[in-house]
Amino acid sequence: MTAKLKPGTKATPKALYQVIRGDIEAKITSGDWPPGHKVPFEHELMETYSCSRMTVNKVISALAESGLVVRRRRAGSFVSRPRVQSAILQIPDLKGEVEKRGERYAYRLIDLGKRAASARDKARLGVDARAQVLAVRCLHQAEGQPFALEDRLINLQAVPDALREDFSKTPPNTWLVGHVPWTEAEHRITACNADEKIAKELNIEEGTACLVIERRTWRNGEPITAVRLTHPGHLYDLIARFTPTG
């Protein structure tokens, strides 16, 4: 970090603001401060640069607005993690996506259960009330931080092998992508503000904006799975590149 200004050195608030911001940006872009690194507290930056809290707050606010840092109430500011970019017409393997960007992947099963399809299951998956479904709720992590909350239904008539898979070790997303063929898929993309339960599971503030991807797949008209993936909004991008059609 840049040392304090020498006694008697004058700098306009604008110039000093640019110096502080430039120093922090350099630390981040050079990799000295990797994703998840804790930025010094405001009072520490005030002491280092002999400046006011207003100047430091302006710098951190600008860095947060540009996406370089993320502010967490009562915890401080941290270097942002890379956003995942995904084409909306693909069915990604979350484990592969996290590892592809050089981060450590981890997975935790939250809940698993077989049941007769409820009215809500029927609406989500498109099966009749007599169908048997496997309900899976799990958490995907990148570098020890929650990356996606997965809430999935699997149609056991279409995918009976799901009952024999150990989803305490293998993410259902990874297993389905690698083992279950499909002929049709539908994506629905929305946003939500994290309620108390989601905020706790994703380790974010209640009310934080989240990206929600709901997907259903079929094989020759038969429903396979319906999943709802909830991502902290600052960690995910959806990108599609296309050409005009005649």
Rank of each mutant, 00 (worst) to 15 (best):
R74G: 00
C192H: 01
A194I: 06
A116F: 04
S168C: 00
S77L: 02
V39H: 01
E165S: 01
A185E: 12
R53V: 07
E143Q: 15
L68Y: 11
K4C: 15
A191H: 15
E143R: 11
F242T: 14
P146H: 02
A240C: 10
K27Y: 05
S66C: 08
E214F: 02
S118L: 02
R120P: 00
T55Y: 05
A131R: 08
A106M: 06
M46D: 03
T183P: 10
V84D: 12
T29G: 13
E205H: 12
L139Y: 03
H187Y: 14
G178Q: 12
R164M: 09
A162M: 04
K100L: 14
P92W: 03
A158W: 05
L5N: 13
T245L: 13
I189M: 08
K100C: 09
K200C: 01
M54P: 00
K58Q: 13
A119V: 05
A131G: 07
A158I: 05
H140V: 04
K4T: 11
D23T: 06
L229Q: 11
R130C: 03
V84P: 01
E42C: 07
L94P: 01
L89T: 14
T183H: 05
G246C: 14
A75P: 00
L139P: 05
A194T: 05
P7E: 11
P82S: 02
P232V: 03
V70W: 13
E97N: 08
A117C: 08
P171H: 02
T12C: 07
D121E: 12
G67Q: 07
L16F: 00
N193A: 08
K197L: 10
D151G: 06
E103G: 04
F41Y: 09
A135V: 11
T243Q: 15
T183W: 08
D151Q: 15
R108S: 15
T9H: 02
E97Q: 12
T170P: 02
D128Q: 10
S86H: 12
T225Q: 15
G246Y: 14
S66A: 15
M46P: 05
K169G: 08
H187V: 15
R74A: 05
V56G: 00
Q90S: 15
S50R: 14
A117T: 06
A131W: 04
H37P: 01
Y17Q: 10
R104H: 07
S66E: 15
C192A: 13
P160A: 11
I91W: 07
Q132N: 11
E201H: 06
S77N: 10
R72S: 08
H231S: 04
L153E: 00
Y49M: 02
Q145F: 04
K95A: 03
L238N: 08
Y107E: 03
L45H: 03
K27S: 05
